[in-house]
Nucleic acid binder design. Structure first.
Lengths: 135, 135
DNA sequence: ATAAATCGGACTGTAGCGGTCGGGTTTCTA
DNA sequence: TAGAAACCCGACCGCTACAGTCCGATTTAT
């Protein structure tokens, strides 16, 4: 439990790799997949998401690939997780991540408030780390 | 992703409930399950684990149940998670949680070190919250 | 024309999780 | 002494999410 998904891991590896290159340098999903022994098609999916969310810009065609858009300092791990993960919320309790009425015990829930605070502490941790600090 | 499991949630609720009672007061799994509308049999499993790990002491027989052993201040959320969760590790990356050789990319892994640091920050958050602060 | 690359939907297999069931043991009490 | 109430514990099931794969379409450089 409490593991980053493979998709997020691959996304972090790829973004870090791109950020470590020279400014504006283009990278293909294939070369990254080969270098880190990541399943190519899975990484491709991840890159597409990162593209849609504006982390990278994609170029199709023979010499296509991806280049980093934002300044690496600005790319926080939290944003990457939110971009890749289906469910945008990273709430540690279901009560918060889904509609509250789906929580059967919401009326009597005694642990919610403390855990929400704990949640924000965790969020901060993810918001403080940028891929620049991984290069 | 990144949610506490139901088992952990139930364990927190139960321990908080017991901690909120008077010192040495005994509680049955059934009454806690009823009060918070938790599946009884699942909670029972959780309580058994908490018993084995020394958070509570169990008494069998008609007027049996569980009483809290440790001082509520000393019962940290991190310890509860570790007690209930099968895999003791709460590592956000697989490289660390399992045997490192199972990580195919461990030789070339570039994100491991930063994430390990991030991990320890998260661990701290869980270690700082005790059930006493939930009562 | 072909090859190399992104795009994107559909599919599969597996593992874990939430939950349930059944049978056993202990202990109080009527 | 019988029965009820509680803990104990292993086995089982159904579902979902995730990792990974496959296929076809589009774009573009050579």
């Amino acid at each position: 439990m409490f593991q980053l998904s493979k998709k997020v891991e691959y996304g972090l590896i790829a973004l870090r790799h791109i950020a470590a290159g020279s400014r504006g340098q283009i990278f293909t999903a294939k070369e990254i997949a080969d270098k880190y022994q990541i399943p190519f098609e899975l990484l491709a999916k991840v890159m597409q998401k990162l593209c849609k969310k504006g982390f990278v810009v994609s170029y199709q065609g023979v010499h296509g690939g991806y280049i980093l858009v934002r300044d690496a300092h600005e790319v926080k791990v939290s944003a990457i997780i939110n971009a890749i993960e289906e469910k945008p919320s990273v709430s540690i309790i279901q009560c918060e991540s889904e509609k509250p009425e789906s929580c059967i015990i919401h009326t009597t829930c005694t642990i919610k408030d403390p855990l929400v605070k704990l949640q924000s502490s965790i969020n901060k941790v993810f918001e403080e780390l940028s891929i620049m600090e991984m290069v």
